[in-house]
């Protein structure tokens, strides 16, 4: 799995952190996404897909 985030699109909702806290975090000051693991282990793939789906700024792209 290859994950990419568009920090320019990110609106700081934090929905990705709620869906996949092992893969995403937020910067303290502005809430912009921090990608902790751009490949993510297999046991996180469902969570990552959920995170990409619920992102209200369509800022997460997942390629298999």
């Amino acid at each position: 799995m290859k994950i990419s985030v568009d920090v320019d699109k990110c609106c700081g909702a934090g929905q990705c952190v709620l869906a996949a806290p092992d893969v995403f975090d937020q910067r303290d000051d502005d809430g912009i996404v921090i990608l902790l693991d751009a490949t993510a282990p297999a046991d996180q793939h469902d969570n990552v897909r959920k995170a990409a789906a619920v992102c209200p700024a369509a800022a997460i792209e997942v390629r298999q």
Partner: peptide, 11 residues
Amino acid sequence: VNMPRATRTYR
């Protein structure tokens, strides 16, 4: 307001 990460922790 301008506290995204902290605000989320109260969700």
